[in-house]
């Protein structure tokens, strides 16, 4: 599998590690435990189809990437720096 890093270009997937769903970008603000925290850490839509998740280009530029891809065909549809995606979410 190959992922096109916005900084390094098209690279073999062995250079990346995967964390999980895009939800990790939206850390809840509550100080105590809450349903939002249960959502954030545990519950997943787990779609068979298009999803977005977080990858780390550990063997490359050490950027975190938000990757839009298909969990059935493994097509990679879009890749952006997670930093930009996070800032875009306000």
């Amino acid at each position: 599998m190959r992922i096109k890093c916005p900084l390094c270009g098209d690279r073999d997937s062995r250079e990346y590690t995967y964390m999980g769903h895009e939800t990790y970008l939206d850390r809840p603000g509550d100080e105590g435990w809450s349903a939002d925290w249960d959502d954030y850490l545990h519950l997943r839509d787990n779609p068979a189809g298009v999803t977005r998740d977080l990858w780390y280009h550990g063997a490359g530029c050490t950027s975190w990437l938000l990757v839009e891809r298909d969990t059935v065909t493994h097509d990679i549809l879009r890749v952006e720096l997670a930093r930009d995606a996070k800032r875009g979410r306000g």
Binding site: M1, S13, R14, Y18, G20, D53, T71, V72, H74
Partner: peptide, 13 residues
């Protein structure tokens, strides 16, 4: 393979 998937197949790494 460590990425979420339903493809019932994996990759070389």
């Amino acid at each position: 393979d460590f990425y979420a998937s339903y493809a019932a197949r994996g990759n070389l790494p």
